[in-house]
Amino acid sequence: MFANTPYEDITYENRNGAAWITINRPKVYNAFRGKTIEELIHAFLTAASDKSVGVVVLTGSGDKAFCTGGDQSNHDGDYDGRGVVGLPIDELQSAIRDIPKPVIAAVNGFAIGGGHVLATICDMTIAADTAKMGQVGPKVGSVDAGWGTAYLARIVGEKKAREIWYMCKRYTAQEMMDMGLVNKVVPAAELEAEVTSWCETIMEHSPTALALAKRSFNCDSESIRGISMMGLNAVKLYYDTEESKEGVNAFNEKRKPNFRQF
């Protein structure tokens, strides 16, 4: 399937041992579809097996968005991929966590919905001062009932995590750093240079020590993987309901959803 790279929805570049994986769908604010997720999984596994790669950077194309989650215009009930909800999102999330190398999210713009979850589960996050982050699921008939909720609460605390999901507000990069979801905020024009500097520092360190550190960090939250799988099965059942479909239809029709009818 990927014999003739470059990819269609992403780009992959090895920059002196740093694998830069970029979601390249700027016209839809780097929202992902089934093909995007499949390519991202392949790219992360490629980086995992490449001994010359010591660190991975995940970012979005352009200056508008890091990733805005699932492409709702492509949501036909089960998207167009495989996996429990028609997208192997669990495999991508696992790839980010399981790759034995640090993963840095370079948030260059909107990190909304599923994009916000991806930034959350990366090992570290560096954001441009123009970035906006937050959740949108309950506004469009969706939810990430796993890493996006349980793991989020470990980072920001229960009260703030519930606020993020229940209120669906957008937060500045500085606000997210104050919550502990972002490691550093820099001017947008300096984002790439700052991330590159972090990558260069990581490349000076022992890859085995880094891999062991990542494994040990992951051990403490590994139970969330089971929560995520159970949650995905529940979400699949939810996506089949008229209530969830109302959220998608309202988004595509550019109107407010009428969830209360259900």
Rank of each mutant, 00 (worst) to 15 (best):
F2R: 04
A3E: 14
N4I: 12
N4V: 13
I10E: 00
N16L: 11
G17A: 03
A18P: 04
A19H: 00
N24H: 11
P26Y: 02
Y29M: 08
N30F: 02
K35Q: 13
T36A: 06
I37C: 07
E38A: 12
L40M: 12
F44I: 13
L45R: 08
A48I: 03
D50R: 03
V53W: 05
V56G: 04
V57F: 03
K64N: 15
K64D: 15
T68W: 02
N74W: 09
G77V: 08
G81K: 01
I89K: 00
D90H: 08
E91A: 14
L92M: 11
I96V: 12
I99W: 02
P100L: 09
K101L: 05
V117P: 04
L118H: 07
T120K: 02
M124D: 13
I126D: 04
A131F: 02
V136H: 08
K139I: 07
S142W: 02
V143E: 10
D144M: 01
G157W: 03
A161Q: 06
E163I: 04
I164Y: 06
W165D: 11
Y166C: 15
Y171L: 14
A173N: 06
E175W: 00
M177H: 10
M177S: 12
D178M: 12
M179F: 14
L191N: 02
E192V: 14
I202V: 15
S206C: 14
A211C: 11
S216G: 07
S216P: 04
N218Y: 06
M229W: 00
N233A: 12
K236G: 08
Y238H: 07
D240R: 06
G247L: 05
K256F: 07
Q261W: 01
